[in-house]
Amino acid sequence: MSFSVTEPSGRQKLFAGVLVVVYALVTIMPLAWIIATGFKTPSDAIAYPPKVVFEPSLEGYVNLFTTRTRASAETLENLGEPQTWYDSIVRENDMVIVGPSRYGERFLNSVIIGFGSTFLSVFLGTIAAYAFSRFKVPLKDDLMFFILSTRMMPPIAVAIPIFLMYRELGLNDTHLGMILLYTAVNLSLSVWLLKGFIDEIPVEYEEAALIDGYTRFQAFYKVVLPQAATGIASTAIFCLIFAWNEYAFAVLLTSGTAQTAPPFIPTIIGVGGQDWPAVAAGATLFLLPVMVFTILLRKHLLRGITFGAVRK
């Protein structure tokens, strides 16, 4: 039963439209600024008043991916003409490229750890949620509460014990260590979310499959999983966003081989003064994977977010 709602008047529509546009501008502003800064030269980036119109430059991106050193005029002359477009950008500032930066490595670490822990959280979460949803688990309610209780204090509160534990176990600054840590944090969210989704899938589907001659695992794999896809997708996005953006543990537990991008990006500032365009470029690139992942799954995500709001 729905109440009929009167059509909004023209003025109401205009007001709503203006409101939406203003709100969009406010939220998009910082993002746009970061992306724009990535394409400025360092002097444009710190210009006052800030430059809205500027000449785009790839200097930030070149600086992001390289390590450079200042060279004397003599040295520069001996080098001859720059070989590549990025060489020429660097030469203009009297510098030469001496090697690649660590950004690529750190980025790859983020991908491995972010997606690895997301996969593991969702995988374990689905299995656990299925068991909690379908089987008689002794102390089910208490266990579910216990799982939730791991989220009741901020994870960083146990940073010191974890640091000590990891040092003893040799997990400091390893991919495995970070994946396990993020999985541990995300798992409770994942179990709870997915249990809700799986509860909503009528058990009759599996029973029908069981009668048709499928095994319990086949029924789970062929019937439950496709229907839980929405839930799995939205849970995966939540898990990835957390693992991808996590900063505090990354600073504490990683420094070299397993360092992720978030703690690395601020260190770029140090090289040759305040290199804001390089930082902005790093941040922009860092945003992309989550954005792409979310866009790919947005169909599911939308259904996932509104899930449970209206029943039947």
Binding site: P202, E204, Y205, E207, A208, L210, I211, Y214, P226, Q227
Partner: peptide, 18 residues
């Protein structure tokens, strides 16, 4: 269930939606 050679029709039909 699979060894009994019977068929079951559920109230909500339990058709696989995908």
């Amino acid at each position: 269930a699979s060894e009994r050679d019977i068929a079951f029709v559920f109230q909500m039909f339990a058709l696989y939606p995908h």
